[in-house]
């Protein structure tokens, strides 16, 4: 192959490596981290990361139906959500639907934002007994125990799991809107036009949620 046929800055070795990365991400069962790939292939980490970024950019194009996304700090390949209607017609084994009730989602949100958090702390926010919902979330492996809190009674603390990030398509917890943004959403949902003592433009909160 002549140099002219290559994209600028991509040598044949690099091209081959990217193709291999794509294949590995396709075959892996769980999102692989750049560190795992780097270790497994014995390729420097920064090179792997650069390749992954390039692959993600490429797959994000409208021309492609499959994309590589960052989920739970690793990389995962999946069909794009916008094609779900068409894809669904051809999927034979539909995954068992796991739908969480709003109380369960709310409890999960409290754990995600306040972790490590105890059941009494969850109940203080929700104003309702939450033991049952917590055990549902534990069973679903969306949350797990995180040691005991050093207060009277030594209550168990809980945190979210890697499964939580995977099931909700999050790269890491920082991808969630901040508590401040949630508060603005909440206040405007409760009909408060001017957030008290808050100079931030409401557009900010919405943009950040997107």
């Amino acid at each position: 192959m002549s140099a002219q046929q290559q994209l600028p800055g991509i040598d044949p070795g690099e091209k081959r490596r990217r193709a291999l990365l794509e294949a590995i991400i396709y075959a892996a069962e769980e999102p692989l981290t750049a560190a795992q790939i780097s270790k497994g292939l014995d390729v420097p980490l920064d090179q792997v990361e650069a390749d992954l970024r390039a692959l993600m950019e490429e797959s994000a194009s409208d021309k492609r139906g499959i994309e590589i996304r960052k989920v739970a700090k690793g990389y995962k390949m999946s069909t794009k959500a916008e094609h779900h209607d068409g894809v669904r017609k051809f999927v034979k084994t539909l995954r068992p639907k796991f739908r969480l009730s709003l109380p369960a989602l709310e409890t999960l949100a409290v754990v995600a934002y306040k972790q490590p958090v105890t059941i009494p702390e969850i109940q203080a926010v929700r104003g309702v007994n939450s033991t049952g919902v917590v055990s549902t979330l534990l069973n679903r492996k969306l949350i797990t125990t995180a040691g005991r809190k050093a207060v009277i009674g030594r209550p168990m603390q809980y945190r979210t799991t890697k499964d939580f990030l995977i099931q909700f398509g999050l790269s890491d917890l920082t991808e969630l809107p901040t508590l401040k943004e949630l508060e603005e959403l909440g206040r405007s949902a409760l009909g408060e036009v001017e957030p008290a003592g808050n100079t931030q433009e409401p557009e900010h909160a919405e943009a950040a949620v997107e």
């Binding site: 959500a81 894809v87 969480l100 949100a109 104003g127 909700f168 949630l182």
Partner: peptide, 25 residues
Amino acid sequence: IEHEKFVQAAQMLREKRLVEENTWT
């Protein structure tokens, strides 16, 4: 307000889950 924050967060998680449900590996 504290409670409403997490009602909003629950909605947000529900939407994220919905997107995930519509992708296939």
